[in-house]
């Protein structure tokens, strides 16, 4: 019940916040939508603690900025608010201990994609007239198209999407904990380097290999590492002897997953990027014939410089 109430409230809030003409109860709408978002989050259960506080800060920041993106009448500000959304999402990624993705998101989205957007916004906006202080807002920026139907349909979708979370989230099976250190079996060189850096083995000592399987003798479950000494004999390190930086880090796990499980997908992604680049070049090279005469006239008219 709370779910549907807050979803409906959010829908009304977004509907009110959408720009239409001159007078709009935008602030009221934004407040309503914010209240709805907060209510739904509270309905899922309030969580205390500092890390949880960060979750709420980033979540509300992201949703608020997203609302601003779709309601701000000026495209440049919408793009800037989108950067704020990206930063909030990166914060959520950090809380989810996906550090690499958080920074990749900031670099790729805020650094590259959004700059492209800003370029195009500035390329494709009419310059203000001489006498005017600033360009008048184009009517297509200040008037939303069929806001009611869109809000109703979208928030109906949200209600359906989130029904499961309120009803059955508690009954979801807990995923079996997976030990990321299991990946250490695949990186004996890292194990050797870490152990050597901490002075636990000497140069020339190698991680032993299991005689039956031929794999490095690293047991992530039991936490034992067997090392063949150069001087002969073996030495076993148990888990409480592991240096702190022995454990698999986010970026290492990500790299292994990316290159071991999805090598074909990387190739496809590369092809997609290549095609997009070619397509963009071909598309934007095309000259529009209609404009040419006008441009020449203009160039002759004011001496070619603007």
């Amino acid at each position: 019940m709370l779910l549907y109430g807050s979803v409906a409230l959010g829908g009304v809030g977004v509907w009110l916040a959408l720009p239409r003409g001159k007078r709009t109860p935008q602030v009221l709408g934004a407040l309503l939508a914010g209240a709805a978002g907060g209510m739904a989050l509270l309905g899922l259960g309030l969580a205390g603690g500092l890390a949880n506080l960060y979750f709420y800060v980033f979540a509300l920041m992201g949703l608020g900025a997203a609302l601003k993106v779709i309601t701000h009448p000026r495209p440049v500000y919408a793009a800037l608010y989108f950067i704020l959304t990206v930063l909030a999402a990166a914060g959520l990624f950090l809380i989810l201990s996906a550090e690499f993705m958080a920074f990749a998101l900031i670099i790729v989205y805020a650094g590259a994609i959004l700059i492209t957007y800003l370029f195009v916004i500035m390329l494709a906006t009419q310059a203000p007239e001489e006498g005017q202080e600033e360009a008048a807002q184009a009517p297509y920026d200040t008037n939303a198209r069929e806001p009611f139907i869109a809000c109703a349909a979208s928030f109906l979708l949200l209600g359906v999407l989130t029904t499961m979370m309120f009803r059955g989230a508690g009954q979801l099976e807990k995923a079996a904990p997976l030990n990321p250190d299991a990946l250490l079996v695949q990186m004996p060189r890292k194990v050797e380097n870490v152990l050597r850096a901490h002075g636990m083995i000497e140069a020339g000592d190698k991680v032993a290999h299991d005689e039956r399987t031929g794999r490095p003798a690293i047991d992530a479950e039991a936490g034992t590492i067997t090392v063949n000494r150069k001087s002969g004999g073996t030495r076993v390190f148990t888990k409480d002897q592991w240096p702190a930086d022995m454990h698999v880090k986010n970026i290492e796990g990500l790299g292994f997953d990316l290159l071991r499980e999805h090598p074909g997908t990387i190739e496809i992604a590369g092809v997609i990027l290549l095609m997009a680049m070619l397509g963009a070049v071909v598309l934007s090279r095309k000259q529009v014939q209609i404009d040419e005469d006008e441009k020449q006239k203009q160039a002759l008219g004011d001496g070619g410089g603007r």
Partner: peptide, 17 residues
């Protein structure tokens, strides 16, 4: 919620960018 906001924006805004 963020997806929904994006969807509303896509349906209602008329500016291509």
């Amino acid at each position: 919620a963020m997806f929904t906001i994006g969807l509303v924006g896509f349906l209602t805004r008329r500016n291509l960018i």
